[in-house]
Simulated assay, not measured.
Amino acid sequence: MNKNSLLILAGLLLCIVFESMAQSKNKVIAHRGAWKNTGATENSIGALEHAIKLKCYGSEFDVHMSADSVLFVNHDHTIKGTDIEKTSAKELSEIKLSNGENLPTLEAYLKAGANQKKTRLILEIKTSRLGKERSMALATKCVALVKELKVGKITDYIAFDYDVCLKVKQLTPKAHVQYLNGDKTPAEIKAAGLDGIDYHLGVFKKHESYIREAKENGLVTNVWTVNSKADMQYFLDNKVDYITTNEPEALLEMTK
């Protein structure tokens, strides 16, 4: 290898290192997308696009299943008085969000996030109010659609239902899966083969050793939903891996 080739290779390696360092500083996951300060509706495709423009590490969103087994993105189990799980996809697709978008299907949402690699899609599988079997069916369909659309490399999974987390890991062992409910120790999460804990800020403050214990077990830590600058600073100081927030702009400024 000649001198010029070595210089080019060294330059490329430096670029990779600097990009990795810049990315590691970005701990920001936009909760339901970047909506609060952008005029977008939470969990809309517009909110996802704003999170991507901000270069957030990730954009979190919530998934339910219609009565006829079509997947939709929305936080609550109901929207405009309509129960998503008891309503057909045709009826749901006619619902307008406050920013003028149609209620997005998971397919449309994933496709909107598919043409980039910087912002991860943090897919929350919502616990069904119709029973465990339906929650597991939702998990199975989410994993299948992610695989079909070939977005697995940028998609992580989170869920409050422990069995759903285990199911996702069984279906797609290489996927990154984190548990949300806060009632399992890091050691229990490690033993189950999951990748991390994604707990409410109150859980981490009550169990101050969890961040350290998670790191000792090789687990990723994420905390939700952190909106005050004081809490952001607390978790930055305690070196949590990622912070989920409704204020991604403020947190991005703090992590520059």
Rank of each mutant, 00 (worst) to 15 (best):
R32M: 02
K126Y: 02
A51S: 15
S24A: 15
T78S: 13
S44A: 08
A108R: 08
I84M: 05
T41A: 15
I95H: 04
L48A: 08
S44I: 05
E101M: 09
V70G: 00
A47G: 05
N115D: 15
K118I: 10
L97N: 04
I16G: 01
V73D: 07
V28S: 12
I122M: 14
I52E: 10
N37P: 00
S69E: 15
L123M: 14
E19V: 08
G11Q: 06
L121M: 15
G11E: 03
K36L: 15
L12F: 15
K36M: 14
V70K: 09
Y57F: 14
N99R: 01
E124M: 09
W35V: 01
D76F: 00
T78M: 02
K80T: 10
H64P: 02
V63P: 03
L97R: 07
S24V: 00
L71K: 06
A47S: 14
L103M: 12
G131H: 08
K53E: 15
I29R: 03
G33P: 07
N26M: 06
S88D: 12
T82V: 15
F61C: 04
L9Y: 13
Q116W: 07
H75F: 06
E19R: 00
I52P: 03
K55W: 00
N43T: 03
L12Q: 03
A137M: 11
E91R: 11
A10C: 13
S44M: 07
K53R: 14
G11A: 05
T41E: 13
S128M: 05
R32V: 01
L48H: 06
H75P: 04
G39K: 07
I16T: 11
L110F: 06
L123S: 08
I122F: 11
I52L: 09
G100A: 09
H50A: 15
K111D: 00
G100D: 07
D62H: 04
A10H: 02
R134L: 13
V70M: 03
T105V: 03
A139G: 15
H77L: 02
I52N: 08
W35P: 00
A139K: 08
A40L: 02
K141D: 13
L92W: 09
G11V: 04
H77K: 07
D76C: 02
I52A: 10
A47N: 07
G131L: 10
W35K: 01
V17C: 12
L123G: 01
G58E: 05
E91T: 14
K27M: 07
